[in-house]
Design a binder for these strands. Sequence first.
DNA 1: CAGTGGTCTAGACCACAGC
DNA 2: CTGTGGTCTAGACCACTGG
Lengths: 235, 235
Amino acid sequence: MSKLETKTWQGVRAEVQRRIRSRAWKPGDAIPFEADLAREFGCARATVNRALRDLAEAGLLERKRRSGTRVALHPTGRAVLDIPLIRKEVEAAGQAYGYELLSKALDAAPPHVVAGMERSDAAHLVHVVALHRADERPHVLEDRWIDPASVPDAATADFSTKSPNEWLLENVPFTRSELAIRALPADPDTAGSLDVAEGTAILTLDRATWLEGRPVTFVRLLHGADHVIRSSVTA
Amino acid sequence: MSKLETKTWQGVRAEVQRRIRSRAWKPGDAIPFEADLAREFGCARATVNRALRDLAEAGLLERKRRSGTRVALHPTGRAVLDIPLIRKEVEAAGQAYGYELLSKALDAAPPHVVAGMERSDAAHLVHVVALHRADERPHVLEDRWIDPASVPDAATADFSTKSPNEWLLENVPFTRSELAIRALPADPDTAGSLDVAEGTAILTLDRATWLEGRPVTFVRLLHGADHVIRSSVTA
DNA sequence: CAGTGGTCTAGACCACAGC
DNA sequence: CTGTGGTCTAGACCACTGG
């Protein structure tokens, strides 16, 4: 056996993972207590704790006080999506980033915005529509609503060169956000802006954010044809 | 000041978060060293380390040896998607789960499967198509390909009552997985199975998994109308 | 009430990048 | 080489929960 280093928490995690994968510890089984594993590996309990906690966060283990640690029955997959600035996303793909402000006005919030922001009222909000381009071609249509009660500066901010996406990230903190991913058919306006046929399947991201319980902004990102959201998990 | 408990790592994290949100520590700024914060808060350095590590994982801080810890310039949003068993997902929504095996055969892998599994060859794979229902209505069409070289049991497994989704999770471990989310128009077969009009925008999840570098399975999950993937982040 | 995971401490050594 | 984060230790107390 080349047991390598079970004195580091990564080493302990690797060994435990190996035992789970090899079915030495089967799904649903209880595994030894931290103290016992610490003795077996010849390391401190804190080191074992760190390793097991990491595996529990990854969904491979389920831990409960008093009753101990068990191998998860259904290793609930978790994917971590990075939500970068649209500009950075385009530049990271090696493409030329372009930005164009299409409209800015004070409009009444439509139902899907009211619902997304968990509002009871349909107030007038700052409404910004902007197009992000990658290599000259339409990439993402940003349809954003900002609550001027939470972000007074939004009414006077100039979104002609810097996108609200970027401006908000740099200037407005938030404490909670919700994300919803949908597939929607392109309506006539969207189809025109993104240069696709009406009814084309559009990958849509709705994101709402709050600061201390007060709604800040709601944005619908409508992605151009063939857009893919990717994520990789190394268990 | 009600400084509550800065002797717990959650307390330290909350206080640091507050200073970032209040712009006391601005994006790009270096924050005090762990040792100094530990002295200020009157706790051990390990406690501060735990808190800062957590914030760094959340993307709010950037840490480097020797140069110290800085507030991230663009709090890169991260959304964590839970990928549960389809059955559990349906049951969690309070709906009745139904399952039906549509076909099982040994077929030649089409191009999108070959690419998704990062294969060089277009071998014959076990091909299973199954429909998951929620309250009698079509919910997800599971179009799965399994490499019999990696999973010999797949050829003889009975998928008529238990879905490959569930069978694989319980029986086959993996070390890496890739996820891709797309919006695709429903082709005639898909439209028929999901009971939607042809060309309807379908939210599609492609998931490929490997075990020690060897391809295990590729699945395309085609979701019924109006399906939404949700995720919430409490920063 | 007792057992197990969750956390804190004070100190120590190490690894790595900037000087 | 030096400083800072990364980690390990041995011990301790706490919190929750099952019996």
